[in-house]
């Protein structure tokens, strides 16, 4: 197995069994440097086990994985130096303050006291926790704990950041704040491997998405590629006069598959998606058909998940 210069993570045939149960069952994936890779799956799909192997916390029972060019088994120390890890549940000691934990994390990564303090202050500013820095973690909200967890993972400016369900259990506002920070990190060049059970999160953040179910990757691609597998987007064209429906359907036949909806609706399924809107409106205008509204409906990752696994993704708060 070899990693190209651009590959931050290369995984081949990765498996982990617990007795007879194969939690991860032959996972293959590649994450390019600078990419956000969304690892999507329901509870118990094998997401966290995969992350634990990639972060050297667990040995695989088969297969191999390279992170930043280092083998996770044979070069575990080298892997640990270049990764940042924010595991599920933000395991932070409630009796320590945010500032103390950041300085401890700095020391764990070999920073001298002064450098650890300086880096800690910069990160507290970055995640907007400066005001709460001297409060014990027991008084932090879930969102604050997650932000501190993220800051701790960034102390040594890692090349590859692993975020294991970083927003599970957070309110929408805290979730959006964390998403913004992940985007900023990625803009700075950090590769992000993000596990999530939230379809929306994968769609919002990930350049590419791998869907894992029962230990196996069942689909992989960009969100758009995955959605395209389910079917082309559908344009809902609402007409003002029901009498025009027949004429509109005939005129729009050249733009895609046509279906009628109600008295005034025509559905056009087109691979062009949003780009089909202007030509459709022009065609109807030329045909003398008055349009009330045009709405684009694209398949969601929910549809993809259902199509590839045969069951809906669940978004419970329990850890995978």
């Amino acid at each position: 197995m070899s990693a190209s210069r651009q590959d931050a993570i290369v995984v081949e045939g990765l498996a982990r069994a617990y007795g007879g149960l194969r939690a991860v069952d032959g996972v293959d994936l590649t994450v390019a440097e600078g990419e956000i890779y969304g690892f999507l799956g329901p509870n118990g799909a094998g997401k966290s086990t995969t992350v634990r192997i990639l972060t050297t916390l667990l040995r695989p029972t088969a297969g191999r994985a390279l992170v930043a060019g280092h083998d996770v088994e044979r070069e575990a120390a080298a892997v640990r130096r270049v990764i940042g890890v924010a595991l599920q549940e933000a395991a932070l000691d409630p009796l320590m303050t945010g500032r103390e934990l950041l300085q401890l994390q700095g020391a764990l990564h070999g920073l001298r006291r002064g450098a650890a303090r300086e880096r800690g202050e910069a990160l507290l500013d970055r995640v907007a926790l400066q005001d709460a820095a001297d409060r014990r973690l027991g008084t932090y909200s879930g969102g604050m704990r997650r932000r501190l967890d993220l800051a701790m993972a960034l102390v040594h400016e890692p090349r590859v950041l692993f975020l294991d369900e970083p927003t599970t259990g957070l309110d929408p506002s805290s979730r959006a704040t964390l998403w913004d920070e992940v985007r900023r990190l990625n803009d700075d060049g950090t590769t992000v491997f993000l596990t999530t059970q939230y379809l929306e999160e994968a769609e919002q953040l990930a350049d590419r998405v791998g869907i894992i179910d029962q230990g196996r990757i069942v689909a992989e691609g960009t969100p758009d590629e995955l959605k395209a597998r389910v079917g082309d987007p559908v344009l809902h064209v609402d007409l003002i006069d029901p009498a025009d429906a027949e004429r509109a359907a005939g005129a729009l036949a050249a733009h895609g598959a046509i279906r009628r909806r109600g008295d005034c609706g025509v559905l056009v399924q087109s691979a062009l998606g949003a780009r089909a809107i202007a030509p459709i409106v022009r065609t109807l205008d030329e045909a003398g058909v008055e349009v009330d509204a045009v709405e684009l409906e694209t398949p969601t990752l929910d549809d993809v998940f259902l199509a590839v696994t045969g069951h809906a993704a669940t978004a419970e708060d329990a850890p995978a």
Partner: peptide
């Protein structure tokens, strides 16, 4: 410094031990 060197560097590990001892003491 490489990561492997980091794990074997006595000065670095002395800082780690001190930081962990300090944390242990605070918790206690």
């Amino acid at each position: 410094m490489s990561s492997a060197a980091l794990e074997r560097d006595p000065a670095v590990q002395a800082r780690v031990v001190t930081a962990l001892a300090g944390r242990g003491l605070r918790i206690q």
